[in-house]
Amino acid sequence: MTTNDERAIITILGRDKVGILAEVTAVLAKANINILDISQTILQEFFTMIMIIDLSPGKINFYELQQVLKEKGKDLSLEITVQRAEVFKFMHRI
């Protein structure tokens, strides 16, 4: 059973183009990280994609993933951030 502690949220912000999802999911697949949910929308004129992931089966830790995706974001001219899920739970629930 997984716990919320291993959950993280990936946010991808930038200009929409072909292959964003493929590029990012390839990184996750290689690291054996499971995607629990994906959603995309437009936020203040920016393409926004949100992924909820489970890090527990992963081959790399949270900080390594953060670094890898930051690099990937630079390649794709997108801003990719990874945040632990607790921040959202804490902010919106009491």
Binding site: R7, T11, D37, L43, T48, I52, V87, F88, K89, H92
Partner: peptide, 20 residues
């Protein structure tokens, strides 16, 4: 089991940090 917060709430947090 998915987290107990919604995509809208995630977006709200992101917007508060990135835009506001």
């Amino acid at each position: 089991m998915l987290p107990t917060f919604s995509i809208d709430e995630i977006l709200e947090t992101i917007r508060m940090v990135k835009v506001e």
